[in-house]
Design a protein around this nucleic acid. Structure first.
Length: 474
RNA sequence: GGUGUGGUACCCAAGUGGCUUAAGGGGAAAGUCUGCAAAACUUUUAUUCGUCAGUUCGAAUCUGACCCACACCUCCA
């Protein structure tokens, strides 16, 4: 049984798709005004796991992710600068160039992290027409009103407003941090269409029945999901910070316009906890995947790190914890390599078989973990236990490992420790041979000296039973 | 002020009433192997789950109080 935590009910629910065997899923993608930091990446990783688990369970998934290339506003929905325009100004580029270059960087990060891309990326600027249509729809049904700076959604007209976030609207109004906009009817009302400032030309602005301007932040997801997935679909995911206001407002827009339920399962991932130093794009102190790569970590080391925690909980990031992940991942690859070698050797002797009972027992244990609200730490524990099971042949273990890796995405089938082949420079090979000779002559002093020399050149020698492995030190 | 989440070993982190007198990984220690290392393999590493009360035959898991962290309350993954 496949179960997910649904933010709507705040409980784990059995997953039942609208259409048997098929899943339609939408996730809120990046706003492309800057690089992704590793916290952002945690969310996309979680969505990747979700996608993989659905596929593993045999569902045909249609997965849509948006790219927000229209700027929101820095301060709140009524004031402040547009982040996209601001970034463009700082870098002396056009907004369109900014969007393109950061979209590219995002897609590259996704690739490096082995995150499966969505079937469709929807760019907000490609769906302006549909967004305008949606405002018209809401206008016709009486959910909108216009004030000096834009067209707004009247949240008081939507009785279940705030249910997703369990909002206490009265408490909100009394809250210290909420500023009233004099013209807004309710604190929670939000912009559907913002007018361009009268004395200023924006780089991104469009004609609309209400005047030149640009769409409100929340509208794009409602319009794009409707276009690509229909009025009612299965899963909508992203991180917890979007529960309010973003998803709350999406529900209000979509359900008011479409007249039917919007999404069955809302699934939200928690943040990466950076400890004292809170990462913030505005402060510029955030860690990107590139930062980690520069420090000598592979993107898959980071992926392994993320696998060690459940998506619903905060994960404490530290270099120490990342090192632990890197070591764990390295050890795992080592074990897989040993299995590969064993299978290779055994394969010539006898036909490798899979013993159905044992095999499916492990598969079941694995499925139980991943289907229980994507319990990756649990699945990893099953993985490590399986590798230690003496009742399994190397062939069976390797097969299970590859099967599990459909979820983990650690490229275990591709792992290859660099060994004595063309990648090793000639001079190193010569030194290795010299050391071998010294060893044969039992001149261990010399052989150790040569080994140190090789080490100084960046290569490590590992003496195996009847072979020598040369490894590049990273 | 409102709402919500969490505090599990040296670090990361599962488990949310009996299968657990608490998974898994990292680290550390010991052993086997080895000329020595490395690798591999084996073993050890929380009588205890923020604190204090309570419910129960039985609690890390439920209830209450308290302490501490964190998040959200219109920038935010």
């Amino acid at each position: 049984m496949l179960k997910f935590s649904n933010t709507l009910s705040r409980t784990k629910e059995e997953f039942i798709p609208i259409e048997s065997g098929k899943v339609r899923m939408y996730s809120c993608g990046p706003t492309v005004y800057n690089f992704m930091h590793i916290g952002n990446l945690r969310t996309f990783f979680f969505e990747d796991i979700l996608l993989r688990v659905l596929k593993y369970n045999g569902y045909a998934v249609k997965y849509v992710m948006n790219i927000t290339d229209v700027g929101h506003l820095t301060a709140d929905s009524d004031t402040g600068d547009d982040k996209m325009e601001e970034s463009a100004r700082e870098q002396g580029k056009s907004v369109w160039d900014i969007a393109e270059s950061y979209t590219k960087a995002f897609k590259n990060d996704i690739l490096l992290m082995n995150i499966i891309p969505p079937d469709i990326y929807t760019k907000a600027t490609d769906y302006i027409k549909q967004q305008i249509e949606m405002i018209k729809c809401l206008e016709e049904k009486g959910f909108t009103y216009t004030i000096s700076d834009g067209v707004y959604y009247d949240t008081s007209k939507f009785p279940s407003y705030g249910d997703l976030a369990r909002l206490d609207i009265k408490g909100l109004q009394e809250g210290a941090r909420v500023e009233f906009s004099a013209e807004k009817k309710n604190t929670t009302d939000f912009a559907l269409w913002k007018f361009s400032p009268k004395n200023e030309r924006r780089q991104m602005e469009w004609e609309s029945p209400w005047g030149i301007g640009f769409p409100g932040w929340h509208l794009e997801c409602s319009a794009m999901s409707k276009t690509e997935l229909g009025n009612h679909f299965d899963i909508h995911c992203s991180a917890i910070d979007h529960i309010f206001p973003h998803h709350t407002n999406e529900i209000a827009q979509s359900e008011a316009c479409n007249g039917e339920k919007f999404v069955n399962y809302w699934i939200h991932g928690d943040f990466l906890d950076m400890g004292n130093e809170k990462m913030s794009k505005s402060l510029g102190n955030f860690i990107t995947l590139q930062t980690l790569i520069e420090k000598g970590y592979s993107p898959l080391d980071y992926r392994y790190f993320l696998l060690m925690a459940h998506y619903k909980k905060k994960l404490k990031f530290s270099i120490e914890a990342l090192d632990a992940a890197r070591n764990g991942y390295k050890n795992l690859r080592g074990k897989i390599n040993n299995l590969k070698q064993a299978v290779h050797e055994e394969g010539q002797v006898n036909d490798s078989k899979v013993e159905a009972e044992k095999f499916s027992e492990w598969k079941n244990r694995f499925s139980e973990s991943i289907n229980d609200d994507l319990n990756m730490p649990g699945a990893m524990a099953v993985f490590w236990d399986m590798l230690r099971d003496e009742g399994l042949s190397s062939y069976e273990k390797l097969n299970l490992a590859y099967d599990f890796d459909k979820i983990f995405g650690l490229n275990l089938d591709k792992t290859d420790v660099k060994s004595s082949d063309s990648e090793i420079p000639e001079e190193i090979k010569i030194l290795v041979n010299q050391r071998n000779d010294a060893k044969k002559n039992k001149d261990f002093k010399l052989s150790d000296e040569i080994r140190n020399e090789i080490k100084g050149l960046g290569y490590e020698i590992l003496d195996k039973k009847d072979s020598i492995e040369i490894k590049k030190i990273n």
